[in-house]
């Protein structure tokens, strides 16, 4: 069952640009980008109980690194650009994560919230690098001789990277590291007693989470084609948190589904104009009241990863 579903799903994803109008290809790319962020955030929140309201900040760092790099050094292949975006963001993540190690729950959420504001301020004020409030039109990404200009090309880039990131996340959760993270999720005290170095793993989770989000930010810059500080406000961080809570904390399929639900809801509700935030808010409340474990808790057994 599981294998058949995976096969059919992969085939559908690969053929997707030939099957649907361009707009849906673009929308699917956005879903995958958000799913990568959601997975990254879930590795942090779902596994080590560190909630972040600053992931829009990491996302922005990744997006700007990718955009500025492509502007200044057009010859760099997109894969290298994305890796650099991810690494730069991971460094920023470490710079924030290490001093925040002692913080938990609410306090960490507050520190990351403040971090998000500081990043937006920094982008606005580093005009010489980021063009400040004017924003940056992101040039087309190149992969060797290929210019990834069409929606389909961008989609395959996003899909390829997304698949790698999902596979890596699934593998992380299965390795020694993953078991350590799971142990931390279940009980920090028990994990420590079993020899899990709590500080090291929490820092690692922060860096990995930032890496995921930075890579996604880079992809976002290419998919949308224009970035400016207004894109990365605190409400975007909140959307990311909503994705993993609706999808299910500590679940990778849940992260993907949560990202899809929130992204598609935004698209669908745009037509309701001033009723949009009203409906969106009601849906969030309804989900939480009637499905507190997130969608992952209601998904069929075979979708759950082996744990």
């Amino acid at each position: 069952m599981r294998r058949a579903a995976l096969g059919a799903g992969s085939a559908l994803l690969l053929l997707w640009p030939f099957l649907v109008p361009r707009y849906f290809v673009f929308l699917t790319s956005l879903v995958v980008v958000n799913a990568i962020v959601a997975i990254g955030l879930n590795l942090l929140s779902g596994y080590t109980n560190q909630l972040s309201f600053g992931h829009a900040g990491f996302f922005a760092v990744g997006a700007y690194v990718a955009a500025v790099l492509t502007l200044r050094a057009p010859g760099v292949p997109v894969v290298a650009t994305l890796v650099l975006a991810g690494l730069a963001t991971a460094l920023v993540g470490l710079a924030l994560g290490i001093p925040c190690l002692r913080l938990e729950g609410l306090y960490l959420a507050m520190a990351t919230l403040a971090f998000g504001f500081v990043v937006v301020e920094a982008i606005q004020n580093l005009d010489w690098l980021t063009r400040g409030n004017d924003g940056v039109a992101v040039p087309t990404a190149h992969l060797g001789p290929l210019a990834l200009a069409s929606d389909a090309a961008k989609y395959y880039l996003v899909l390829g990277v997304g698949a790698l990131m999902v596979a890596a996340a699934v593998n992380i959760t299965r390795t020694r590291t993953g078991r350590a993270l799971l142990a931390i999720r279940e009980s920090e005290i028990a994990a420590q007693a079993s020899g899990v170095h709590l500080a090291a793993y929490r820092t690692l989770a922060f860096a990995v989470s930032a890496f995921y989000t930075g890579v996604a930010g880079g992809l976002f810059a290419f998919v949308v084609g224009f970035i400016s500080p207004d894109a990365f406000d605190v409400f975007l961080s909140v959307d990311f948190v909503a994705m993993i809570i609706i999808g299910g904390l500590g679940s990778i399929p849940g992260s993907v589904v949560g990202a899809a639900v929130i992204t598609l809801l935004y698209d669908w509700l745009a037509a309701f104009q001033n009723y949009r935030p009203l409906l969106f808010g009601l849906i969030l409340i309804g989900c939480m009241l009637f499905m507190p474990g997130g969608i992952a808790s209601r998904m069929p057994k075979w979708t759950q990863q082996a744990q």
Binding site: V224, S228, A231, D233, D267, A270, Q273, N274
Partner: peptide, 14 residues
């Protein structure tokens, strides 16, 4: 037809 973008560039693009 009007769609809400809430002043966000990425939503305006979508």
């Amino acid at each position: 037809i009007y769609y809400d973008d809430g002043y966000k560039p990425q939503e305006a693009v979508a």
